[in-house]
């Protein structure tokens, strides 16, 4: 996973530099630094550092595999990958429903879905919490601060 993350940084750096190099002028007509000079410089440094990082991580990975084979690795920190994925997905669902359902209903939906996963067997509390928290945030932003929050297809602000 760590290597994949590092590789995606390298790919993003390559794309950034390539796009900057092909669409921007590194030097202007007078030979002075142009709009692309600093971005390309940053891009090149990014490629060098992220590339080096990938090589280092590959080497570390190999060394770890060898060491684990000899030492017998059985220690794994307890992580909650599924829970993290659920929260990330719920945030995406929240954003997808934000314009469609409107701010208030999407907040209620998010709270209900979240609490039904993480706070099971407390139905009444979850319902109350899912109504009161969005109501408080809605009052603060839409009424007190007068932020233009989306109304949604039901025209429910």
């Amino acid at each position: 996973m760590q290597l994949l993350f590092s590789i995606s940084f390298l790919v993003a750096s390559l794309a950034f530099t390539l796009h900057g190099w092909t669409t921007l002028d590194v030097l202007d007509s007078l030979g002075r630094p142009g709009a692309g000079f600093f971005p390309v410089l940053i891009g090149v440094l990014l490629i060098l550092t992220t590339g080096w990082n990938c090589i280092k991580e590959l080497a570390t990975r190999r060394a770890l595999v060898n060491t684990d084979e000899q030492l017998g690795s059985d220690s794994q920190d307890e992580v909650h990958g599924l829970d993290t994925l659920v929260v990330a997905t719920l945030i995406v669902v929240f954003l997808l429903s934000f314009k469609v359902l409107g701010s208030f209903l999407s907040m209620v939906l998010f709270c209900l879905l979240f609490l039904s996963w993480f706070n099971r067997q407390k139905l009444v509390f979850n319902l109350l919490y899912s109504l009161l928290l969005p109501a408080g945030v809605y009052l603060l932003f839409a009424v007190v601060l007068r932020a233009g929050l989306p109304a949604g297809i039901l025209d429910f602000h």
Partner: peptide, 22 residues
Amino acid sequence: RLVVPVIVILCVIGTFALHSSM
């Protein structure tokens, strides 16, 4: 687990309220 919805909602609503930009 009860603080998480508060943080997420404040983050999303707060960001949208900046420029009403999705």
